[in-house]
Design a protein around this nucleic acid. Structure first.
Lengths: 220, 220
DNA sequence: GTCTATACGTTGATAGAC
DNA sequence: GTCTATCAACGTATAGAC
């Protein structure tokens, strides 16, 4: 009952529960606007437990961001896997759209953190992210030199990919209201991924012959 | 000295001061995370004055959003002014990029409001914005039918424009850090507007003259 | 119109019973 | 490991002197 293994299980389960609740609250209300009581209620635990497991609100916030960064890295890896621009961009955009779908609150915590000036993520942005961006910029430049894509500014292209893919997580509510009050279902979201791919690939010069199956925009 | 005209001047000046300070604070910390004291400090006024002019924090927040919506409408008008897709899209994207440049905090307040579920803007989104979007969707469909642009999903295109243009306001800090720690200067920003135009216009099939020849399909 | 003082609820964090 | 009770600090808002 109180064996070390059992205790670890409880700890892990509760920590995961609190992290998930915290991610949602931080996404909805930002760091300052989130209360530990709000997190506790969301996790259906007493407020004191939140402090027992994570000590301070600031520390819990850092742990939430850390989890998001891990998933971010996974999506980033999709870009590096292939040297063909169409395949690499498709893999990356698809991974980012999946992240937005599966972890919309994580995306919003990131957005909120940057909107307030990125006090916690500053270091990550200036080191890991900058290094990653520099490498991607070189890859894109090589594609341009080889005539594989149009001559666009690589950073502008990267930012467009981030902006568009994250928009579907961060502005989910607006999109749902404009969709008649309903969030996208799975079918709608898959179709949207196709459209995003078509638009972004189109912006660097690829036309949509490869994905003509999806195109169904003839009717009024 | 205390003539009605003079009093009105003071009121208007202070209200404007508080509104600007509030916009910044709400942008940085969201509705809940913003304190009336923070707004007062930002405006260099005593906390009580904020309540004297705007009564409650919630009301001040609504006034800030109202001001942002007005500017948003102005930018929206740029889309309707022209029936030629290239000119209409260029005017709209340029107006939106200018808004992001001149009012980055306004853009972030909007983002923050939507990320928390749009409790205040819900009505606007479902009425004015939805009507505007529907009209724009019809326009874009007519361009597609007339063969003036590629057959893309109109809403996906609109969302891409919003996402990309607002990204430069909402993620300003991240962009600055990736830019070596410095925010874009005027020249850099103008160039970025050109790149954004090139990418988005390219996504619907317009190619910049300079690189018409460069475009060749990547042979895998 | 301005601002100090303050009422009163909320919040982050902890102590200590279970 | 769990949770109730508690507290100092902070937050919104107002009263009332100037």
């Amino acid at each position: 009952m109180s064996s070390p293994a059992r205790k670890l299980d409880i700890r892990e389960a509760n920590e995961a529960l609190i992290l998930r609740a915290a991610e949602k609250q931080f996404a909805l209300h930002g760091f300052r606007g989130t209360t530990t009581e709000g997190i506790a209620n969301e996790a259906r635990l007493p407020k004191a437990n939140v402090h027992y497991y994570f000590k301070t609100k600031a520390n819990l916030y850092r742990q939430v961001l850390k989890g998001i960064l891990e998933d971010w890295m996974d999506a980033a890896a999709a870009f590096e896997a292939d040297d063909d621009p169409q395949r690499a961009l498709t893999a990356y955009i698809t991974a980012k759209m999946q992240f937005s779908r599966q972890r919309p609150y994580g995306s919003r915590v990131w957005a909120s953190e940057i909107m307030r000036g990125a006090p916690v993520m500053e270091r990550f942005l200036g080191t890991t992210l900058k290094t990653w961006v520099n490498a991607r910029v070189r890859t894109i430049r090589s594609w341009i030199s080889a005539g594989k894509i149009r001559a666009v500014d690589p950073e502008s292209l990267l930012y467009m990919i981030w902006a568009v893919t994250q928009h579907y997580a961060d502005f989910e509510r607006q999109i749902a209201i404009l969709n008649g009050g309903n969030a996208f279902d799975e079918r709608q979201y898959r179709e949207r991924v196709e459209q995003v791919l078509k638009l972004i690939l189109g912006s660097v010069g690829f036309e949509a012959q490869e994905m003509t199956r999806v195109r169904q925009r003839a009717s009024a």
